[in-house]
């Protein structure tokens, strides 16, 4: 990239410079548009309610009051419960998903008999799907309605992820596998000891996508869960958005919160941040792998 830059720069003309200025400004504006909304609501969530209710606020807090976080996380059982459901679903969904997908991917990366058929079976799920109604009937007949496993199972694996993993595993050097085989190791040993650790970029990518998918999924709870105490956090937020005033009643009076220090704006801002922050915190752990992983998946797809 660096030499690329030098080459281009030497030939920059006056219109080129004007373009550059606009381009840099454009990306500054875009970046701000991604950040400011989150900062804005963060400020709402930590400001003193009496200060902003009179004159509003913009991008900096007015009087600090962290009561909402203490209340939401420790007193309001609803937010905490939903948070717990989301963590549970995301954790088990991601682990099972990554494991099943990578085992399948490794299997079809080898030239075993029936490989073409297996690839077709997986690929076909990308072309055609049963959709919402039959899946709902299936979950119902498995007696999983109102169970958190209904939130996990339908989204465990996707064909796209399997192919992404397979493409990556195909590029691994075969010499190592053969040497393990010589020592009497089976494919299972090779898979867990060698293939999995070497496929870190692809696995991190799939894990991140699965994890984000589960964490952000609000619809499964609407579809499968009637008992609101088992809702995921995203679903709870949706509920709060559609019924602003009830939030205060349910989050406040019932649970014994100090209603004078909370209003609907604040409650929503805080809950949104509680949902966003874990993703932002987890992201750096995956970042160094996942761009590479996506490239492989897409380019060799």
């Amino acid at each position: 990239m660096n030499c690329n830059m030098k080459i281009k720069r030497r030939y920059t003309t006056f219109p080129g410079m004007v373009f550059d200025i606009f381009n840099y400004a454009f990306f500054l504006a875009i970046t701000l548009s991604f950040l400011l909304p989150f900062i804005h609501i963060a400020m709402y969530s930590i400001s003193d309610i009496t200060n902003y209710s009179r004159s509003g606020l913009f991008l900096y807090p007015r009087g600090l009051d962290f009561y909402i976080y203490r209340a939401a996380l420790f007193n309001s059982s609803r937010v905490l419960q939903a948070f717990g459901v989301s963590v549970y679903v995301t954790f088990f969904g991601t682990i099972i998903g990554v494991l099943l997908s990578s085992m399948l991917a490794y299997g079809i990366s080898k030239p075993l008999k029936g490989q073409n058929f297996l690839v077709f079976i997986i690929f076909f799920t990308m072309l055609f799907n049963g959709g919402m109604v039959p899946t709902w009937l299936l979950i119902r007949s498995l007696n999983l309605l109102d169970s958190v496993w209904a939130l996990i199972l339908p989204g465990v694996m996707s064909a796209f992820n399997v192919f992404l993993l397979r493409n990556f595993m195909k590029m691994l050097p075969e010499g190592i596998e053969e040497s393990v085989m010589m020592d009497g190791g089976s494919y299972v040993v090779i898979f867990f000891r060698i293939v999995l650790p070497l496929s870190k970029p692809a696995i991190a990518t799939v894990a991140l996508m699965t994890l984000v998918g589960y964490w952000n999924d609000y619809f499964s709870s609407i579809l499968y869960i009637y008992d609101k105490t088992k809702w995921s956090l995203a679903t709870l937020i949706r509920d709060m958005l559609s019924r602003m005033d009830l939030t205060i009643m349910e989050g406040g009076q019932v649970v014994g919160l100090d209603v004078n220090r909370i209003d609907s704006v604040k409650m929503r801002s805080a809950t949104i941040l509680i949902a966003v922050i874990p993703v932002i915190m987890i992201y750096p752990f995956f970042q160094k792998y996942f761009e590479k992983g996506i490239m492989i998946g897409a380019i060799k797809g």
Partner: peptide
């Protein structure tokens, strides 16, 4: 290694297809 993933696909992708 393939079996669990295959079983998953059959239950959660192909049965709903048949369910159509």
């Amino acid at each position: 290694l393939i079996l669990p993933g295959l079983v998953y696909l059959i239950i959660f992708r192909y049965i709903p297809m048949y369910g159509l």
